[in-house]
């Protein structure tokens, strides 16, 4: 049976309300890809549901995964209070991640959605990436250094111009895409970003993939709690974000 116990190597605040945690495990999978997630048990008895966090990055040799998460409630506050040396019950890797097809890949991160991008570059290092990151202001900016260290092109934007270019990441990404003509686009961000992308890239012929977020139960596809609405055939039906996703083709999801 898989050992779910992982040792916390570090757990630090990296931006306003955002934590980065590195966990080490004896049971490191060798098929991990970006877009997959870890289901973390809150270390007390009162919280019955795990917290799904995207796997921000990983290192197969060091047997570590990095989680980057927003502190939004009591459960994440408890996870944020965990210290180096503590153990956490972590179920991973879960979900259907992102496998880039083609050579030139554009990655777009909106706010916390940026957290999913480093693992994509780590899993498929032989692609030409252009990465566009957008945040509301400078206090929210995360992961720019980590991505730059991977030797990929990073364009940063903030809504108010306090860091990087002033403007929305969707506008900047659309301009760059018009020049660079990427083979494929992957984006993780809030739903509004997906709606704008759907509008901007409709009919462009560039496949766009997105990652969804939903309240989860089991995290393994059994309880049907985290469903999203998708177009299948002529009609609409529900798909499981935890198992069929979290990565979907943009055109497939009913936003």
């Amino acid at each position: 049976m898989k050992d779910r116990s992982a040792v916390v190597l570090s757990n630090e605040r990296v931006a306003d309300g955002v934590m980065k945690m590195i966990l080490q495990t004896d049971d490191m999978p060798d098929d991990l890809i970006g877009g997959q997630f870890a289901h973390v048990r809150v270390p007390d008895g009162a919280h019955v549901l795990r917290r799904p966090f995207c796997i921000c990055d990983f290192d197969v040799v060091a047997k570590t995964i990095t989680l980057c998460y927003a502190v939004v409630g009591e459960g994440t506050a408890q996870i944020a209070a965990v210290r180096a040396g503590d153990r956490l019950d972590v179920l991973f890797p879960l979900g259907n991640g992102y496998r880039p097809t083609g050579k030139k890949i554009m990655l777009i991160g909106g706010g916390m959605g940026s957290a999913v991008l480093p693992a994509i570059v780590t899993a498929f290092p032989d692609r030409e990436y252009t990465i566009c990151l957008g945040f509301s202001d400078a206090s929210k900016v995360v992961l720019t250094d980590e991505l730059a260290a991977k030797g990929v092109k990073v364009v940063l934007a903030t809504d108010n111009g306090t860091a990087g270019e002033k403007g929305y990441v969707t506008d900047i990404a659309a301009e760059l895409a018009a020049k660079d003509a990427p083979d494929e686009i992957f984006c993780c961000g809030p739903e509004i970003v997906y709606k704008i992308l759907a509008h901007k890239f409709e009919g462009s012929g560039i496949p766009v993939y997105i990652s969804l977020e939903q309240r989860m139960g089991c995290g393994i596809g059994a309880c049907l709690v985290c469903n999203c609405r998708v177009r299948r055939g002529d009609g609409e039906s529900y798909a499981r974000v935890c198992k069929d996703g979290p990565v979907f083709a943009l055109g497939e999801v009913v936003l």
């Binding site: 008895g45 009162a46 919280h47 019955v48 549901l49 459960g75 939903q214 309240r215 989860m216 139960g217 309880c223 049907l224 709690v225 985290c226 469903n227 999203c228 609405r229 039906s237 529900y238």
Partner: peptide
């Protein structure tokens, strides 16, 4: 049966609420 629209579940103190709707 397709069940209810999301969100279908939320945590509460020492438990959870669900409304999957028999999907």
């Amino acid at each position: 049966k397709q069940g209810n629209p999301p969100p279908r579940a939320t945590e509460t103190y020492g438990g959870m609420l669900n409304a999957v709707g028999l999907q």
